[in-house]
Protein backbone atom coordinates (compact mmCIF):
# COMPACT_ATOMS: atom_id res chain seq x y z
CA UNK A 1 0.00 0.00 0.00
CA UNK A 2 2.95 2.35 0.63
CA UNK A 3 3.66 2.78 -3.03
CA UNK A 4 -0.01 3.51 -3.75
CA UNK A 5 -0.15 6.50 -1.41
CA UNK A 6 3.27 7.67 -2.54
CA UNK A 7 2.31 7.54 -6.20
CA UNK A 8 -1.01 9.19 -5.43
CA UNK A 9 0.84 12.12 -3.89
CA UNK A 10 3.26 12.30 -6.81
CA UNK A 11 0.37 12.07 -9.23
CA UNK A 12 -1.49 14.85 -7.48
CA UNK A 13 1.56 17.11 -7.78
CA UNK A 14 2.07 16.35 -11.44
CA UNK A 15 -1.66 16.55 -12.07
CA UNK A 16 -1.91 20.03 -10.55
CA UNK A 17 0.64 21.22 -13.08
CA UNK A 18 -1.14 19.49 -15.96
CA UNK A 19 -4.34 21.14 -14.81
CA UNK A 20 -2.80 24.64 -14.92
CA UNK A 21 -1.53 24.06 -18.43
CA UNK A 22 -4.74 22.34 -19.54
CA UNK A 23 -6.69 25.45 -18.50
CA UNK A 24 -4.77 27.44 -21.08
CA UNK A 25 -5.74 25.00 -23.84
CA UNK A 26 -9.33 24.78 -22.78
CA UNK A 27 -9.88 28.54 -22.37
CA UNK A 28 -8.62 29.27 -25.87
CA UNK A 29 -10.59 26.37 -27.29
CA UNK A 30 -13.72 27.53 -25.50
CA UNK A 31 -13.54 30.95 -27.10
CA UNK A 32 -11.97 30.34 -30.50
CA UNK A 33 -12.50 26.62 -31.11
CA UNK A 34 -8.75 26.51 -31.71
CA UNK A 35 -6.11 24.19 -30.26
CA UNK A 36 -3.21 26.46 -29.40
CA UNK A 37 -0.44 23.93 -29.83
CA UNK A 38 2.14 26.58 -28.99
CA UNK A 39 0.86 26.68 -25.42
CA UNK A 40 3.32 24.05 -24.18
CA UNK A 41 6.19 26.21 -25.43
CA UNK A 42 4.86 29.13 -23.43
CA UNK A 43 5.23 26.93 -20.33
CA UNK A 44 8.83 26.24 -21.34
CA UNK A 45 9.55 29.95 -21.90
CA UNK A 46 8.05 30.59 -18.46
CA UNK A 47 10.35 28.05 -16.82
CA UNK A 48 13.51 29.21 -18.60
CA UNK A 49 12.92 32.95 -18.30
CA UNK A 50 12.12 32.64 -14.59
CA UNK A 51 15.37 30.69 -14.25
CA UNK A 52 17.24 33.56 -15.91
CA UNK A 53 15.68 36.11 -13.56
CA UNK A 54 16.37 33.88 -10.57
CA UNK A 55 20.04 33.55 -11.58
CA UNK A 56 20.31 37.34 -11.80
CA UNK A 57 18.89 37.73 -8.31
CA UNK A 58 20.50 34.70 -6.75
CA UNK A 59 23.38 36.55 -5.14
CA UNK A 60 21.42 39.67 -4.22
CA UNK A 61 20.97 38.45 -0.65
CA UNK A 62 17.19 38.38 -0.93
CA UNK A 63 15.46 35.39 0.67
CA UNK A 64 14.97 32.45 -1.69
CA UNK A 65 11.20 32.52 -1.59
CA UNK A 66 11.16 36.18 -2.56
CA UNK A 67 13.61 35.54 -5.40
CA UNK A 68 11.36 32.77 -6.65
CA UNK A 69 8.34 35.05 -6.43
CA UNK A 70 10.02 37.86 -8.35
CA UNK A 71 11.26 35.35 -10.92
CA UNK A 72 7.73 34.04 -11.28
CA UNK A 73 6.19 37.50 -11.70
CA UNK A 74 8.72 38.55 -14.33
CA UNK A 75 8.33 35.24 -16.16
CA UNK A 76 4.57 35.71 -16.07
CA UNK A 77 5.00 39.14 -17.67
CA UNK A 78 7.20 37.64 -20.38
CA UNK A 79 4.67 34.88 -21.07
CA UNK A 80 1.67 37.21 -21.02
CA UNK A 81 3.35 39.42 -23.61
CA UNK A 82 4.24 36.35 -25.60
CA UNK A 83 0.70 34.96 -25.46
CA UNK A 84 -0.70 38.31 -26.54
CA UNK A 85 1.76 38.46 -29.44
CA UNK A 86 1.09 34.87 -30.54
CA UNK A 87 -2.61 35.56 -30.85
CA UNK A 88 -2.02 38.81 -32.73
CA UNK A 89 0.54 37.46 -35.15
CA UNK A 90 -0.43 33.84 -35.69
CA UNK A 91 -4.16 33.51 -35.03
CA UNK A 92 -6.00 36.79 -35.45
CA UNK A 93 -5.18 37.20 -39.16
CA UNK A 94 -6.57 33.70 -39.67
CA UNK A 95 -9.75 34.19 -37.63
CA UNK A 96 -12.01 33.54 -40.62
CA UNK A 97 -9.70 31.08 -42.39
CA UNK A 98 -10.47 27.34 -42.52
CA UNK A 99 -9.80 25.60 -39.21
CA UNK A 100 -6.73 23.83 -40.47
CA UNK A 101 -4.84 27.07 -41.13
CA UNK A 102 -4.47 28.27 -37.51
CA UNK A 103 -3.64 24.71 -36.48
CA UNK A 104 -0.68 24.79 -38.85
CA UNK A 105 0.47 28.22 -37.66
CA UNK A 106 0.15 26.91 -34.09
CA UNK A 107 2.64 24.17 -34.89
CA UNK A 108 4.80 26.74 -36.65
CA UNK A 109 4.79 29.03 -33.62
CA UNK A 110 5.66 26.06 -31.45
CA UNK A 111 8.72 25.23 -33.57
CA UNK A 112 9.80 28.88 -33.72
CA UNK A 113 9.59 29.24 -29.93
CA UNK A 114 11.52 26.04 -29.34
CA UNK A 115 14.30 27.10 -31.70
CA UNK A 116 14.34 30.57 -30.22
CA UNK A 117 14.69 29.11 -26.74
CA UNK A 118 17.49 26.90 -27.94
CA UNK A 119 19.33 29.95 -29.28
CA UNK A 120 18.83 31.89 -26.05
CA UNK A 121 19.31 29.16 -23.44
CA UNK A 122 21.29 26.58 -25.37
CA UNK A 123 20.69 22.86 -25.85
CA UNK A 124 21.76 21.80 -22.40
CA UNK A 125 19.75 20.95 -19.34
CA UNK A 126 19.70 23.67 -16.70
CA UNK A 127 19.53 22.79 -13.07
CA UNK A 128 16.99 24.89 -11.21
CA UNK A 129 18.16 26.09 -7.78
CA UNK A 130 16.02 25.00 -4.87
CA UNK A 131 14.72 28.28 -3.49
CA UNK A 132 11.98 27.09 -1.19
CA UNK A 133 13.01 25.96 2.27
CA UNK A 134 13.81 22.27 1.90
CA UNK A 135 11.67 19.89 3.89
CA UNK A 136 10.35 16.40 3.67
CA UNK A 137 7.26 15.19 5.46
CA UNK A 138 6.19 11.66 6.28
CA UNK A 139 2.59 10.62 6.03
CA UNK A 140 1.44 7.04 6.53
CA UNK A 141 4.68 5.72 5.13
CA UNK A 142 4.69 8.01 2.12
CA UNK A 143 6.76 11.15 1.91
CA UNK A 144 6.37 14.48 0.21
CA UNK A 145 8.42 17.66 -0.04
CA UNK A 146 7.65 21.30 0.65
CA UNK A 147 7.85 21.92 -3.08
CA UNK A 148 5.07 19.41 -3.68
CA UNK A 149 2.89 21.05 -1.04
CA UNK A 150 3.48 24.47 -2.60
CA UNK A 151 2.66 23.14 -6.07
CA UNK A 152 -0.64 21.61 -5.03
CA UNK A 153 -1.70 24.56 -2.88
CA UNK A 154 -0.72 27.25 -5.40
CA UNK A 155 -2.36 25.37 -8.26
CA UNK A 156 -5.55 24.85 -6.25
CA UNK A 157 -5.74 28.52 -5.22
CA UNK A 158 -5.12 29.64 -8.79
CA UNK A 159 -7.88 27.41 -10.06
CA UNK A 160 -10.32 28.68 -7.45
CA UNK A 161 -9.39 32.24 -8.43
CA UNK A 162 -9.89 31.57 -12.11
CA UNK A 163 -13.24 29.90 -11.48
CA UNK A 164 -14.39 32.93 -9.51
CA UNK A 165 -13.13 35.28 -12.20
CA UNK A 166 -15.01 33.44 -14.91
CA UNK A 167 -18.24 32.85 -13.00
CA UNK A 168 -18.58 35.90 -10.81
CA UNK A 169 -17.17 38.93 -12.60
CA UNK A 170 -18.07 41.23 -15.45
CA UNK A 171 -15.05 40.04 -17.43
CA UNK A 172 -15.82 36.39 -16.82
CA UNK A 173 -19.35 36.92 -18.08
CA UNK A 174 -17.99 38.67 -21.14
CA UNK A 175 -15.65 35.71 -21.71
CA UNK A 176 -18.46 33.20 -21.44
CA UNK A 177 -20.70 35.30 -23.67
CA UNK A 178 -17.95 35.57 -26.28
CA UNK A 179 -17.39 31.83 -26.09
CA UNK A 180 -21.07 31.23 -26.80
CA UNK A 181 -21.38 33.75 -29.61
CA UNK A 182 -18.82 36.47 -30.34
CA UNK A 183 -21.11 38.51 -32.60
CA UNK A 184 -23.96 38.63 -30.11
CA UNK A 185 -21.55 39.39 -27.28
CA UNK A 186 -20.39 42.26 -29.48
CA UNK A 187 -23.93 43.61 -29.68
CA UNK A 188 -23.93 43.62 -25.88
CA UNK A 189 -20.93 45.92 -26.03
CA UNK A 190 -18.31 43.25 -25.46
CA UNK A 191 -15.20 43.85 -27.55
CA UNK A 192 -14.55 40.27 -28.64
CA UNK A 193 -10.98 41.02 -29.77
CA UNK A 194 -10.11 42.32 -26.33
CA UNK A 195 -11.66 39.32 -24.63
CA UNK A 196 -9.75 36.97 -26.91
CA UNK A 197 -6.47 38.78 -26.16
CA UNK A 198 -7.27 38.65 -22.48
CA UNK A 199 -7.90 34.92 -22.69
CA UNK A 200 -4.48 34.36 -24.19
CA UNK A 201 -2.88 36.61 -21.59
CA UNK A 202 -4.51 34.81 -18.66
CA UNK A 203 -3.74 31.39 -20.13
CA UNK A 204 -0.11 32.42 -20.59
CA UNK A 205 0.16 33.63 -17.01
CA UNK A 206 -1.05 30.20 -15.88
CA UNK A 207 1.50 28.63 -18.23
CA UNK A 208 4.30 30.68 -16.66
CA UNK A 209 3.19 29.54 -13.23
CA UNK A 210 3.10 25.93 -14.40
CA UNK A 211 6.57 26.30 -15.93
CA UNK A 212 8.03 27.59 -12.70
CA UNK A 213 6.33 24.89 -10.65
CA UNK A 214 7.29 22.01 -12.90
CA UNK A 215 10.93 23.07 -13.07
CA UNK A 216 10.97 23.47 -9.28
CA UNK A 217 9.52 19.99 -8.94
CA UNK A 218 12.08 18.26 -11.14
CA UNK A 219 14.90 20.73 -10.48
CA UNK A 220 15.57 20.89 -14.18
CA UNK A 221 14.60 22.96 -17.23
CA UNK A 222 15.42 22.71 -20.93
CA UNK A 223 14.32 24.09 -24.26
CA UNK A 224 12.17 21.12 -25.28
CA UNK A 225 10.44 20.57 -21.93
CA UNK A 226 7.26 22.21 -23.25
CA UNK A 227 6.54 19.70 -25.95
CA UNK A 228 5.61 16.58 -24.00
CA UNK A 229 4.17 18.63 -21.15
CA UNK A 230 1.97 20.49 -23.65
CA UNK A 231 0.76 17.27 -25.23
CA UNK A 232 -0.10 15.81 -21.85
CA UNK A 233 -1.94 18.92 -20.74
CA UNK A 234 -3.81 18.85 -24.04
CA UNK A 235 -4.69 15.24 -23.27
CA UNK A 236 -5.89 16.33 -19.84
CA UNK A 237 -8.08 19.02 -21.41
CA UNK A 238 -9.58 16.48 -23.82
CA UNK A 239 -10.06 14.00 -20.98
CA UNK A 240 -12.00 16.57 -18.97
CA UNK A 241 -13.92 17.81 -22.00
CA UNK A 242 -12.17 20.51 -23.96
CA UNK A 243 -13.71 23.95 -23.57
CA UNK A 244 -14.80 23.19 -20.04
CA UNK A 245 -12.80 24.82 -17.22
CA UNK A 246 -13.77 22.39 -14.47
CA UNK A 247 -13.08 19.59 -16.93
CA UNK A 248 -9.53 20.80 -17.50
CA UNK A 249 -8.88 20.86 -13.76
CA UNK A 250 -10.36 17.42 -13.15
CA UNK A 251 -8.75 16.01 -16.29
CA UNK A 252 -5.34 17.37 -15.30
CA UNK A 253 -5.37 15.96 -11.80
CA UNK A 254 -6.81 12.65 -13.01
CA UNK A 255 -4.20 12.31 -15.72
CA UNK A 256 -1.40 13.00 -13.26
CA UNK A 257 -2.72 10.35 -10.91
CA UNK A 258 -3.26 7.79 -13.68
CA UNK A 259 0.26 8.39 -14.91
CA UNK A 260 1.86 8.11 -11.49
CA UNK A 261 -0.06 5.00 -10.52
CA UNK A 262 0.60 3.48 -13.93
CA UNK A 263 4.30 4.14 -13.60
CA UNK A 264 4.28 2.70 -10.08
CA UNK A 265 2.59 -0.54 -10.97
CA UNK A 266 3.60 -1.21 -14.55
CA UNK A 267 6.60 -3.27 -13.43
CA UNK A 268 4.46 -5.57 -11.29
CA UNK A 269 1.74 -5.81 -13.91
CA UNK A 270 4.06 -6.83 -16.72
CA UNK A 271 6.28 -9.04 -14.62
CA UNK A 272 9.13 -6.56 -14.89
CA UNK A 273 9.14 -6.41 -18.71
CA UNK A 274 8.17 -2.72 -18.75
CA UNK A 275 9.55 -0.20 -16.26
CA UNK A 276 8.39 3.14 -14.91
CA UNK A 277 10.08 4.96 -17.78
CA UNK A 278 7.00 3.93 -19.75
CA UNK A 279 5.13 6.56 -17.76
CA UNK A 280 4.37 8.64 -20.85
CA UNK A 281 2.55 5.76 -22.47
CA UNK A 282 -0.33 6.13 -20.04
CA UNK A 283 -1.18 9.71 -20.96
CA UNK A 284 -1.43 8.92 -24.63
CA UNK A 285 -3.22 5.67 -24.00
CA UNK A 286 -5.79 7.71 -22.08
CA UNK A 287 -5.99 10.18 -24.98
CA UNK A 288 -6.75 7.37 -27.42
CA UNK A 289 -9.33 5.76 -25.16
CA UNK A 290 -11.10 9.08 -24.57
CA UNK A 291 -11.10 10.00 -28.25
CA UNK A 292 -12.53 6.61 -29.17
CA UNK A 293 -15.12 6.15 -26.43
CA UNK A 294 -15.99 9.61 -25.18
CA UNK A 295 -14.66 12.30 -27.51
CA UNK A 296 -16.55 15.02 -25.64
CA UNK A 297 -14.61 14.17 -22.47
CA UNK A 298 -15.77 13.54 -18.92
CA UNK A 299 -17.54 16.88 -18.48
CA UNK A 300 -17.88 17.82 -22.10
CA UNK A 301 -21.64 17.93 -22.69
CA UNK A 302 -21.64 21.70 -22.76
CA UNK A 303 -19.20 21.77 -25.63
CA UNK A 304 -21.30 19.36 -27.61
CA UNK A 305 -24.34 21.54 -27.16
CA UNK A 306 -22.43 24.64 -28.05
CA UNK A 307 -21.28 23.21 -31.36
Amino acid sequence: MDIFLQQLINGLTLGSIYALVALGYTMVYGILGLINFAHGEVVMIGALSSLTFVRLLENSGLPGTLVLLIGLLLAALVCMTLGFAIERVAYRPLRSAPRLAPLITAIGVSIVLQQLAMLIWGRGYHSVPALLPAGRHEFLGASFTNVQVVIVVVAALTMVGLTLLVNRTRLGRAMRATAENPAIAGLMGVDADRIISLTFVIGSALAALAGVLVSANYGIAHYHMGFILGLKAFTAAVLGGIGNLAGAMVGGVLLGVIEALGAGYIGDLTGGVLGSHYQDVFAFFVLIVVLVFRPSGLMGEKVAERA
Partner: peptide, 22 residues
Protein backbone atom coordinates in the same frame (compact mmCIF):
# COMPACT_ATOMS: atom_id res chain seq x y z
CA UNK B 1 -26.43 32.99 -24.38
CA UNK B 2 -28.11 29.63 -23.95
CA UNK B 3 -25.81 28.17 -21.30
CA UNK B 4 -26.01 31.18 -19.00
CA UNK B 5 -28.85 31.97 -16.63
CA UNK B 6 -31.49 34.54 -17.52
CA UNK B 7 -29.99 36.95 -14.99
CA UNK B 8 -26.49 36.47 -16.38
CA UNK B 9 -27.74 37.16 -19.90
CA UNK B 10 -29.06 40.52 -18.75
CA UNK B 11 -25.91 41.17 -16.72
CA UNK B 12 -23.82 40.74 -19.89
CA UNK B 13 -25.96 43.50 -21.38
CA UNK B 14 -24.64 45.90 -18.73
CA UNK B 15 -21.17 45.52 -20.23
CA UNK B 16 -21.01 48.76 -22.25
CA UNK B 17 -22.19 50.84 -19.29
CA UNK B 18 -19.81 49.41 -16.70
CA UNK B 19 -16.04 49.36 -16.39
CA UNK B 20 -14.58 46.82 -13.94
CA UNK B 21 -11.31 45.53 -15.40
CA UNK B 22 -9.17 42.53 -14.70
Amino acid sequence: FGNMTARENVMVGRHPRTRANV
